[in-house]
Amino acid sequence: MANTFLDAVKARRTFYGLSKEVVVKEDRVKEIINTAVKHSPSAFNSQSARVVVLFGKESDKVWDITKEELRKIVPAENFAATEERIDSFAAGYGTVLFFEDQTVVENLQEQFSLYAENFPIWSNQSSGMLQFVVWTALQEEGLGASLQHYNPLIDEQVQATWNLPKEWKLIGQMPFGKPTAQPGDKEFSPLEDRVKFF
């Protein structure tokens, strides 16, 4: 019996070579994101995920912000490599920004004080599941993507640029676009060291 879900899980990879050529229309990307946000699981059905999808010039802005923030902390003699890396993300035609709404997390901490310290952990786990669903679904449509973490370095600028609520905590950035290069071979640690069956 075929399992297309596991096939998609196996096929998902990190793509650093991207182009702005549109191979999937914006409406389809919106449909994927909406479906992923609606159906990805969250602790206590909290639905704390918040997502911003940037296309074209709006996507370029987030990488311009990232580059300028990094310029402040990376030594000038090392900046060329950093700039090349950021430019590779900007080469895509869109970026997904993943957030978790801290108001939701804090409300759950108040309502269920016994589990208060776990809600931030569960929030991050929920975000990770959503990121994986989006990443895999984009790849199934023929888009390459990678997952980046320039937060909290860019948080304030991102919130100000797109007028986002301060309660939205930035978790990750996912540039996507038409793949221009295939990822290299992936090595796997032995499963017998990582999985136990009883």
Rank of each mutant, 00 (worst) to 15 (best):
F119L: 05
Q125N: 13
Q148H: 10
E117A: 12
L130K: 06
V133F: 14
N107C: 00
Q139H: 11
N124S: 15
Q111W: 04
L147C: 12
S123N: 13
I121C: 05
S123K: 07
S126T: 09
P152R: 05
M129E: 06
F119C: 04
L147D: 10
F132D: 14
Q139N: 11
P120D: 06
S123C: 13
W135R: 04
L153K: 09
L138D: 03
L114H: 11
F119Y: 13
Y150D: 02
I121W: 07
Q109K: 13
Q125Y: 12
N151E: 15
T136H: 05
P120E: 06
H149K: 08
D155N: 13
S113D: 13
A145V: 07
S126V: 01
N124A: 15
W135M: 04
V134P: 11
E117L: 05
P120W: 01
Q131A: 09
N107F: 00
L114V: 14
E106H: 11
N107H: 03
L138F: 13
Y150P: 01
G128F: 01
G144N: 02
S113N: 12
G142T: 08
E140D: 14
G128P: 02
S123L: 08
L108D: 00
V105G: 08
Y115T: 00
V133S: 15
F119N: 01
S127D: 06
P120C: 04
P120M: 03
H149Y: 12
L153D: 07
Q148I: 13
Q139K: 10
Q148V: 08
L147S: 10
A145M: 02
E117P: 04
M129H: 10
L138H: 05
E106M: 05
W135Q: 07
T136K: 06
S146M: 15
V105L: 11
L108E: 00
L147E: 09
L147V: 15
W122Q: 00
L130N: 07
L108N: 03
S123M: 09
L108C: 00
G128Q: 02
N107K: 03
Q111L: 09
E140W: 03
Q148P: 08
Q109Y: 03
Y115P: 00
L147W: 14
N151W: 13
F132S: 15
V105Q: 11
Q139F: 08
G144I: 01
I121T: 12
Q148C: 08
F112A: 04
E106R: 10
E141R: 11
M129S: 09
V134H: 09
F132P: 10
N118F: 00
L114W: 13
N151D: 15
E110T: 11
S113L: 10
S126E: 03
S146N: 15
